[in-house]
Amino acid sequence: MTVAKGATLLSKPTGTGLAAFTPRKVMDQPVGEELERAMTPTPRTRGKDDTVALTVRLPRAEWERLHQRAVTEGTRIQQRAVRGLSRLFTDKGLPGLE
C-alpha cells in the first residue's frame, strides 16, 4: 500500500464501543487517609423516605390498555397498581396495602 507524500496512516482503534473515543484516565492509588476514606461505606441515599419509587416496565400495548382503563375510571395508574397489589395480599388472607 502506498501513501501520498506528507499523509499519515490512521492507526486502528485498540478499543471498541464509545470507550475507544474517550481519553483514558490513570487512577492514582489512594494512600493513607484517602485510602481509608475510599474504603468507608457511604450512607444510603435511596429508599430512605416513607415513600419509595418503583419502576414497572410494560409493553406499549399493555400500557395503553392500562392507561385507557385508568382514564375511563377517572383514576391514576398508580392507584390501580396499588389496588391490584393490595388485592394479591388480601386474596392470600394477609392485610392489604394502604
Rank of each mutant, 00 (worst) to 15 (best):
M1T: 09
M1W: 00
T2L: 13
T2G: 10
V3F: 06
K5E: 12
K5A: 12
G6C: 02
A7Y: 07
T8D: 07
L9T: 13
L9E: 12
L10C: 01
T14R: 14
G15Y: 07
G15K: 14
G15A: 12
G15H: 00
T16Y: 10
G17Q: 01
G17E: 08
A19F: 02
F21G: 09
T22F: 06
P23W: 03
R24L: 13
R24H: 10
K25I: 14
K25D: 08
V26N: 11
V31Y: 01
G32A: 09
E33A: 14
E34V: 02
E36A: 15
R37I: 14
T42L: 12
T42M: 10
T42R: 15
P43N: 04
T45W: 07
G47R: 05
K48R: 14
D49Q: 13
D49I: 01
D49N: 11
D49H: 05
D50W: 00
T51F: 10
T51R: 12
T51V: 15
A53S: 11
A53H: 08
L54N: 05
T55S: 10
V56I: 15
V56P: 01
R57C: 01
P59T: 09
P59H: 04
A61P: 01
A61R: 08
E62Y: 06
W63V: 03
E64C: 02
E64P: 01
E64W: 07
H67K: 11
Q68I: 00
R69D: 14
A70S: 15
A70V: 06
V71A: 15
V71C: 07
T72A: 14
T75H: 04
T75V: 13
R76T: 15
Q79S: 13
R80E: 12
R80I: 14
G84F: 09
L85W: 04
R87H: 13
L88A: 11
F89I: 04
T90H: 05
T90G: 08
T90L: 06
T90S: 07
D91K: 10
D91P: 01
D91G: 04
K92E: 15
K92I: 00
L94P: 00
L97D: 06
